[in-house]
Amino acid sequence: MSLTRTYRFSAGHRLYIKELSEQENFKIFDACSNPNGHGHDYSVQVKVAGDIDPETGMIISLQELDGTVHIVIDELDHRRLDIEVPYFEENQPTGENIAKYMWERIRVNLGDKLIHLKLSETSNSYFEYYEEDDYPYEH
């Protein structure tokens, strides 16, 4: 059994490789390399799995889940990721890397309970991150 909760945050970013010229960056990243950056309203679906605690009727207390996820969201919300968040100074702030970063930060507190993370950058693009062997659905 799993429980999935959606959270939202907004952040700015620019995709570019420092060593390359603006024209070369534009070839690779197109409009995402705009020198002054741009932003998105992200939403992230966090899925946790486990057995129902017979006393509370819950897999996880929502206070614990919200508290854990908000630690990460507070680091990202209303920030320019590639300038203000150290991890993204070294790693491109793409949906793929943001999803991986959130996964690793949330796992610190939730451990194996976290089984799937889905990050939507727009209503048309989303990124999923999970350990294939632990995912309960057949593919």
Binding site: S2, L3, T4, R5
Partner: peptide, 9 residues
């Protein structure tokens, strides 16, 4: 709610 669901299987 729109932001919270449970899967059971």
């Amino acid at each position: 709610t729109n932001d919270l669901y449970v899967d059971y299987w």
